[in-house]
Amino acid sequence: MTSPEFEKFFRDEFNSLSNLAFTVVKDTDEARDVVQQVFLNYWQRRESIEIRGSAKGYFYKAVLNTSINRLKKSRTLTPIEMVQPDKYVEEPVEEDTRMRDHLHRTINDLPPVCQQVFRMSRFTNMTNKEIAEEMDISVKAVEKHITKAMKVLREKLKPLMANNYLMMWLIALFCYFWMNQVGFLLSILSI
């Protein structure tokens, strides 16, 4: 890549790359740092790096690897109790947030290749063929990984979603009875 090409690529892809990093590290600044680091690494070693597939594919994969590594490192370095207070507790813990955390964790727990394939498929505009090239596996294997990821996610999130509906029903039921009760009390008072 020549310098102007490189700059154009940087500008075109920075946001989609940091978006991809964000799905892993869950922090805007850190996501941007990851992308910066990947670009820096590339720049430093640009003479020795040989991109086999597309440049996009190379950077997507590099960003994924770097962010997953960072997440692992921050997990081993900072005890959960230390991280949690400002990252999760301060904002109101809504059902949505809980779901998102659960989802985040579920994806992170997927086997590495499966996780990377799924993220590339879900969060970038890469085709399965491009993913296959980048990961050096067959298109069939990519499809299998995507299917597996979706299956696991559905299974892991189903109880939570069902729970949601159950709660909704309970609340509706409660409201119904409560309103009945109010009507009942009012009828007593009017007598």
Binding site: F10, F14, S18, N19, T28, Q36, D96, R100, L103
Partner: peptide, 28 residues
């Protein structure tokens, strides 16, 4: 239907605020 819900939910993991590309390039 469930897969669609999961799919949509994974979309919430994405970043909402795009970076200022000019300043990121300058930083780089």
């Amino acid at each position: 239907a469930e897969l669609e819900k999961v799919w949509k939910l994974t979309g919430t993991l994405e970043q909402t605020t795009p970076a200022d590309v000019d300043s990121e390039w300058a930083r780089f």
